[in-house]
Design a protein around this nucleic acid. Structure first.
Length: 562
DNA sequence: GCCGTTTTCGGCCCGACTGTTTTCAGTCG
């Protein structure tokens, strides 16, 4: 997608401008780059439809940047960018990737020591040239040395939400505090995580105990401590009890959301920071909110905004108009229907998976092993499937009903991997694309949805976070036909998938499609990932009504009859 | 460079931590 390329250029321009001591513009370019990165629609498409005007209408993009985008779309380059690149030594921007080195220090290093790459910097450290510079010293040199080492082995990939959540909970589990909460992008259930942010009201020893977990301590203060574990940064902020919720709000972000709220506060002659919301009168500040997040939003004249929506993607406007929907809750799910067992490529028996589901408090559970063509995943022949159906039908555990389904491959021509005769014996069928990503996948999916036995379309885009882009899909078409054929769209909660993505869930919700959250669990442990799917659903503005496995089994069965 | 119920000009979020400082600049999130 061209958006990523353009965003990268704008980021680069922002960094170069910083190096050149240009005021304000770097922020403007940075903001525009972030907006473009997050944009659903292709810039090329927008430009073809509405021209320069269309680009200008995108928030944070004005005449200047719109013209540059136009130039890039037309010619594949931006003259001013080429010029800017030549104006600073290549590699100087790279140096700013070293933590602790910003534009000012990068410039100084270049001016005094002719340093224009990380390799140069490393040599200078070795020869103890840095510590002699003004405003540098022994400690700075040592820090830079460590940061270069860290930079080299740093895994630049962000963590998957599932992994980050597990790690964060492991850390908070080891700490003793009066109050403690995981904030940041984890609390927003963003699909990938950079740093982990934790806020606490301290017990004695909290900060010391936290530092004992560290491989490296980056900063240790009474309010803010940063450590590295493995190749991950974890920030701990400690606040007095009365500042806990304003602190949580601040640390949850997103940054863009907070900045927007602060601007609104200023217009109302107030000030928002991590200590609360303050009314400012004659230079005297009086706290008017901060006991709770609800209070902060209320005093700003808007509805409460749940963390999963705080991305400055329209939620603030909606909250002012009191149009924030009541999102699905984390305890609303009554059953999980995307589950694998030993019959195909799962690790546990049907009985073990059902017991695991029962422990989660579900009232029903569905088994869905792979179909015959998926040999690599232990796909079941028709005979084996009939055997599995028999076994599943025998399982009786009080309080939980067992359904038997299948995750059936959608074949190259859009037909399903079992005959209708076999599909008829199942309680439900999930259709999946597992191969042939290059072809016309939309066509295959549309045809498959016409099959009256296919109730659910699994992981609709086929993407794997950070490793596979997913197939080209005419999503509007899929939404339309899914609605027409009463096919449910899955929100796959597997940590590597989270498919549908948040914006697509929102589009589905707006279009009136019904959705279902499934874990794709291959073990009992995998069942707990349902919360990732719920988080994703919430990020897509989904309510209970949009998600069918919040319904009782009887109501769900009615939906299954196509 | 972007943006507008104080503004089409003049603002642009806000505070913590660190090192080298004698009151602060630079960097970070």
């Amino acid at each position: 997608m061209i958006n990523k390329e353009i965003a990268r250029i704008l980021y680069d321009i922002s960094e170069i401008l910083k190096l050149r001591n240009v005021q304000w513009k770097p922020q403007a370019y940075n903001k525009a780059a972030r907006v473009i990165e997050d944009l659903e629609k292709d810039l090329k498409e927008i430009y073809e439809e509405k021209g320069l005007q269309g680009l200008d209408e995108i928030p944070s993009i004005g005449r200047g940047i719109a013209k540059k985008i136009e130039e890039y779309l037309k010619t594949g380059r931006i003259k001013e960018y080429e010029k800017l690149k030549k104006s600073v030594p290549k590699g100087l921007v790279e140096i700013m990737n070293i933590t602790g080195i910003g534009p000012k220090r990068a410039q100084l290093l270049f001016k005094k020591l002719k340093i224009k790459s990380i390799a140069d910097l490393e040599r200078a450290v070795k020869n103890h040239k840095i510590e002699k510079l003004e405003r540098f010293g022994e400690k700075s040199e040592k820090d830079i040395k460590e940061e270069i080492e860290f930079f080299k082995k740093r895994n630049k990939n962000r963590m998957l939400l599932g992994d980050a959540l597990d790690l964060a909970e492991k850390i908070t589990g080891k700490l003793k505090a009066k109050k403690i909460m995981i904030c940041g992008s984890i609390r927003r259930m963003y699909e990938t995580i950079g740093d982990i942010d934790i806020l606490a009201v301290a017990d004695e020893n909290l900060v010391d105990d936290f530092c004992k977990l560290a491989d490296r301590v980056l900063a240790k203060g009474s309010g803010k401590t940063s450590i590295i574990i493995g190749d991950r940064q974890i920030d701990l902020r400690v606040v007095p009890r009365e500042d806990f919720w304003s602190g949580v709000h601040y640390l949850t972000g997103s940054k863009d959301h907070s900045v927007e709220l602060r601007k609104i506060a200023i217009k109302k002659r107030m000030k928002l920071n991590e200590y609360g919301l303050f009314r400012v009168e004659k230079k005297i500040e009086r706290r008017v909110a901060g006991e709770s997040e609800e209070e902060i939003y209320r005093r700003l004249g808007m509805q409460y905004i749940p963390p999963e929506l705080r991305e400055n993607r329209g939620e603030i406007e909606a909250a002012i108009k009191k149009k924030i929907p009541k999102l699905i809750n984390y305890n609303d799910i009554k059953g999980d229907l995307h589950i694998h067992t030993k019959y195909s490529d799962g690790n546990n028996s049907i009985l073990e998976m059902v017991s695991g589901a029962k422990k989660l408090g579900y009232s029903y559970v569905g088994i869905s092993d792979h179909s015959q063509t998926r040999k690599i995943a232990g796909g079941l022949s028709e005979r084996d499937l009939i055997k599995e159906i028999k076994e599943a039908r025998k399982i009786k555990i009080s309080g939980i009903k067992v359904l038997i389904g299948s995750e059936v491959d959608i074949l190259g021509d859009g037909s399903l991997d079992y005959s209708d005769e076999v599909l008829k014996k199942l309680d439900y069928a999930i259709g999946s694309i597992h191969s042939g990503f290059k072809g016309d996948v939309t066509k295959r999916i549309l045809r498959a949805m016409e099959n009256k036995y296919m109730n659910i379309l699994a992981h609709p885009t086929g993407r794997m976070i950070q490793s596979r882009k997913g197939y080209e899909l005419k999503f509007d078409e899929v939404l339309r036909i899914a609605k027409e054929t009463k096919t449910l769209l899955e929100i796959n909660a597997h940590p590597e998938r989270l498919d549908l993505r948040d914006e697509m869930i929102k589009a589905a919700v707006e279009n009136g499609n019904k959705l279902i959250i499934g874990t794709d669990a291959h073990s009992v442990d995998g069942l707990r990932h349902i919360r990732l799917g719920i988080g994703q659903a919430r990020r897509g503005w989904a309510t209970r009504n949009n998600i069918v496995n919040t319904l009782s089994l009887n109501k769900l069965k009615k939906i299954f009859r196509k």
